[in-house]
Write a protein that binds this DNA or RNA. Structure first.
Lengths: 266, 266
DNA sequence: AATGATGTTTCGCATTGCAAGACAAAACTT
DNA sequence: AAGTTTTGTCTTGCAATGCGAAACATCATT
């Protein structure tokens, strides 16, 4: 199960501590020592000691009556601090809620991390049916509007990696022809936005635009996500305008200025 | 500096790892290894190794060009998960934003943890001047509206501890006479809300109400906070109504039902 | 070039965290 | 109500492991 590529340079017991913390986080309900130990493949004593540490720090709380464990307040606070420190999050907060209020659809912010596009924030739309993307999940680059925006606007050579793996069909509407896909990226670059109806999930569409930093490089995307009924292949003028406004506002917050940044070279 | 009351039962290297993580979080700017080592009173090598671990896990990110460190996305995600798991937070989200939108003042949610009242969430009001309370900070029980609510509604014997320490004056409006203070708590119980104009900070007032769980015990408070101009000693009917509505809705979410829960015994 | 910062790496030794198992206290069964 | 299982908690000996110190590698700045 574990490859012996040692020389991690990392601290083993800390790894275990985070394994425990994340296992507690992953559990919907409060969770007990034995259960955690079984799940993590270690002994009760070890888990217990780590829980003591995490509790002392406030990252984990113990229910006094059931003596089971759950996430503590400090876990929440560190997240709040992180939200303030992660530029793309603090820069997008206002624009995202304004966009959601204006359009009423779910708004999704993602960030490019290495070669992956990770969902950072999802704010659900006004509809009773909640359509969204789980925070922390990874967006398929060739099958989502956000992914295509990333491929179209990032200066990193993302496309090569995608083409090497091949344009695997996810639904029957996924673009699998490299030439057609290249045209799609050109369209995205020309318009500044792009959609992806049914390409990753049937019945769902997204309209995405880039988030750029002060050098003009792509750091993330902002998108509205909803059913194909509400977001058409050719989205409404209002939707496009509102999205681009939000996209520019966030990029502006990050120091991007389309006046001073020179033309984009993909 | 550190007392030798060993036999912690906690894991030392994990403590250090969290020291590092929290030090990174505490720094507004990105921070370097040497700086952290100096701050924590340890060596660069040790800090470096812990940063490797935290980075591998995604709790910390390294800026590739400056090779300095900051909080990573995983820190944010664990906080999001915690927010969903901490009952009082998930139960209050909607009611808090509704209250803020209706009244326009800053809304503050706090939770009773042991014998301390901790600020969990602050949502700023509509005014350009942001008046709020730092998340994670502790509210003075005898000098804030929230503290008085906690003392009035909690079944824990909080008051004894407060009186033992004495009603230390914080401003000249802080209530310091035990008899007068007791009357104030009776008022809070009778009304279901209470204010505390100028009692902790000059020019600031708060209007607070209890958050109760299914047993009818106090688990936290909700309050609107603002300048004494906007929140009077005798608050407007609208403010009181809106606050009590939010307070009840949150308590309801936590399983409290004023119909089925028997009378309160302080 | 020389200096003084930084982040990174190495290495030996003692600390310390781990596995195993004992224990206590509940929660089920019978 | 006694037995049985499963829980959380605690102890202990051994060796793995994380730590400190000091060397190394890159940078800026002088």
């Amino acid at each position: 199960m574990d490859i012996k590529t040692r020389s991690d340079g990392s601290v083993k017991s800390v790894q275990l501590a985070f394994d425990v913390l994340e296992a507690v986080a992953a559990s919907q309900e409060e969770v007990g020592v034995s259960e955690l130990a079984a799940h993590l493949g270690t002994t009760k004593g070890t888990v217990f000691r780590h829980l003591q540490t995490l509790m002392e720090r406030g990252y984990v709380d113990q229910n006094q009556t059931s003596s089971r464990y759950k996430l503590g307040m400090r876990s929440y606070f560190i997240g709040q601090t992180a939200a303030a420190r992660i530029e793309i999050l603090s820069a997008s907060t206002e624009a995202v809620s304004a966009l959601r209020d204006e359009i009423g659809e779910t708004v999704v912010v993602s960030a490019l991390r290495g070669t992956s596009l990770i969902v950072l924030r999802t704010v659900f739309g006004k509809s009773t049916l909640e359509i969204g993307v789980r925070e922390g999940s990874e967006l398929v680059l060739h099958g989502t509007a956000q992914g295509k925006i990333a491929l179209a606007f990032s200066r990193k050579p993302l496309l090569q990696g995608v083409l090497r793996k091949g344009l695997e069909p996810i639904t029957e509407h996924t673009i699998t022809d490299p030439a057609a896909f290249d045209k799609e990226l050109q369209l995205a670059r020309a318009q500044g936005y792009v959609t992806a109806a049914n390409q990753e999930t049937f019945g769902i569409n997204a309209l995405a635009a880039p988030i750029l930093d002060q050098t003009g490089d792509l750091v993330g995307t902002i998108a509205i996500v909803g059913s194909v009924q509400n977001i058409k292949h050719d989205p409404s003028h209002k939707q496009v305008e509102a999205l681009l406004k939000a996209s520019l506002r966030i990029s502006w917050n990050l120091g991007y200025d389309k006046m001073t940044v020179s033309g984009r070279q993909p």
